[in-house]
Design a protein around this nucleic acid. Structure first.
Lengths: 356, 356
DNA sequence: GGCGCGAGTGAGAACGTGCTCAACAGAGGG
DNA sequence: CCCTCTGTTGAGCACGTTCTCACTCGCGCC
């Protein structure tokens, strides 16, 4: 590794000044030739392009951003990219962003408001042109309100903070939960359980997430309207798959155990299945299961799982679309996009009505 | 929406110049007070901080990057973030990056060299300080070689291009595949199949991915050394879950059908299970299954799946670590980090030997 | 032959920050 | 009393790009 050889390679990429000198023109002409604006003679254009090729010139987006005032970058503030649901949302978001020439910076919040605030600060400093956020709490949103006031383009996805003036892209969580539970009730079930997510903020107090909230309210209303009880034992708070497993296993050991359990999200459904197996109960003969979100594995469990499928990719793609429109037209009225879910009946719910 | 109200809010965030004027000091003093360098009187520091707070000042990272020459941003060029394996890798990578003050820009390549080249160009223009790449092809890597020559810090993860002079973070794919197949052979199986991934580049010719390549070679060698045949019918090329399903279903319909099928990655294993179900075969009594990568669903299928678990999160975290070290010390010798896999025996492999 | 016009070109400002340099005041020692 | 040293401050350059402005030159028209 001779130092001479290294020195022959420009440590930092060459600037448009180097290209101009190489081509024997001024910076302005080189910039015009490469930027495709103004008027440049055919001869000069060829010389500049050849020089750029020879020097391996690459536009410095940082400098461009200084001038144009836009970074062509979007930020994404989500709970956890290793959660397959968010991974699909982000895939849709990056695809939508990319097709308009934008890149995406990813920040995980782990459902923690403190991390969300910190991440928002970082993205603001990076001067991203817009931010996608799945708020960690439906109660604490002052940081987001301030960002909006300062003109930051923002879109909420999957969840939303009531009263926060942004575009929102969600599914009809309440209706989906309500209708699914109605279906299960129609199948003759009267004891239906639905554990609910309880996340903890940095300060130790529980965050409420609108998504969970609404799905659970749909469940409650469907039960109540059918004249069915919702005992507290059927709605334990849990923090993740293993806590759900524990809570549901306990519940299934009781004499008045539920005949059906509703998984409010992917990880909850997994925990419920874990619990059912640990009790060695048969699905759907001894206990029925249905879940929210149709992930890849729902067809490889036996019986295949009946679920409320939600268009995760489309959520992200629509959010990108909404965000890009807001960037282009900051004063447009805010919109809430509610994407439809699909009930997929597969076979994990026992029909007690027909059997009776 | 009165225009006056809007005008009262600064459209673009205030600069350090505004803070300096508000505090009654020069730009330089304000910069010193906020940047924490040089010496500033206690009085001036307080006034500057108060002014910054009042104006809601936020550092402009773009301008800072112009001066410092670093963006504190890393790029990630991976196949598909909605693939749970990569999602976990990226989670590890972002965590590692974040703890050192770096953000991550995400680019999906869809296993396409053309998209990878384009993504590399974008990341270069954005002047990211380092790039994580899971190369789409183990054959086409000239674009990456050029980037390295220009001084771009690069780390390859999950796969690698032979001869490309970068840090590499992988698992011992060959050994893992070899040993797993050896185990299955020891359990008395002689007809073991392993479909292999064939992705297509933008130009239509097949990409070889080192990961798949090595796992499959491990399988082949274990078979050959045990004196077992590897008929071409046992190693069909497929492009994803549904193609694997079709290929394996066909294979399982033959009279000389395999007694065990090896899923070289997560999506392949899903396709294999699909095929087994479509043939209504019992696992492990009629056919054994084992896979690569231990995802969340492997414990909710019946029987639970025996797999080679790989530390996806750690792959990403170690890659971040390696990349950050290279950024700090560009001339350090390149290292290849091989992370261990773990064989998890669960019950999807029938022991023919003990039974005989 | 003078004039206008358009194409092509170069000089230079601007973006907001980090950092160097010089200037200045005040304290302290010889 | 002068010199030095230290703490504090402001002026100004640099980063690489985009874009505006003014200038030159050649051509065609009156």
């Amino acid at each position: 590794m001779l130092p001479d050889v290294q020195a022959s390679v420009p440590a930092q990429g060459s600037s448009i000044f180097d290209v101009a000198r190489e081509a024997g023109v001024s910076r302005a002409t080189a910039a015009r030739a490469l930027g495709g604006y103004g008027s440049v003679s055919e001869d000069a254009r060829r010389r500049v392009e050849a020089a750029a090729e020879r020097l391996g010139y690459s536009v410095n987006s940082v400098a461009r951003s200084m001038v144009t005032g836009q970074t062509m970058t979007l930020g994404a503030l989500i709970a956890d990219i290793s959660n397959p649901f968010f991974a699909r949302v982000i895939r849709g978001f990056t695809d939508g962003a990319r097709s308009a020439g934008y890149d995406v910076v990813l920040v995980n919040t782990d459902e923690t408001v403190y991390t969300e605030i910190h991440g928002l600060k970082l993205l603001t400093e990076k001067r991203v042109d817009g931010i996608l956020v799945a708020p960690a709490s439906e109660e604490v949103g002052e940081h987001l309100a301030i960002a909006i006031e300062r003109g930051q383009a923002l879109v909420q996805v999957d969840r939303y903070i009531p009263g926060l003036d942004t575009d929102v892209v969600v599914v009809n969580n309440y209706e989906s939960g309500y209708q699914a539970v109605q279906r299960v009730i129609a199948a003759g079930h009267t004891r239906i359980a639905a554990p609910i997510l309880r996340t903890k903020g940095g300060d130790g107090h529980a965050n409420l997430i609108s998504t969970m909230h609404e799905r659970h309210q749909g469940y409650r209303d469907a039960m109540t309207e059918a004249g069915l009880a919702v005992p507290q034992a059927y709605t334990p708070g849990a923090h993740g798959r293993s806590e759900v497993r524990t809570a549901v296993a306990e519940m299934l050991g009781r004499p008045d155990r539920p005949t059906a359990v509703f998984g409010l999200d992917d990880s909850f459904t997994l925990g419920i299945i874990d619990a059912v197996y640990s009790r060695e109960l048969l699905v759907p003969d001894q206990v029925s299961i249905f879940g929210f979100d149709d992930t890849e594995w729902t067809t490889v469990v036996r019986p295949p799982l009946s679920v409320i499928a939600q268009p995760a990719y489309d959520l992200g793609a629509r959010a990108a679309q909404a965000l890009l429109r807001r960037i282009q037209t900051p004063d447009r009225p805010r919109q809430t996009h509610v994407l439809p879910t699909t009930w997929i009946e597969r076979g994990s719910i026992r029909d007690l009505a027909r059997q009776a």
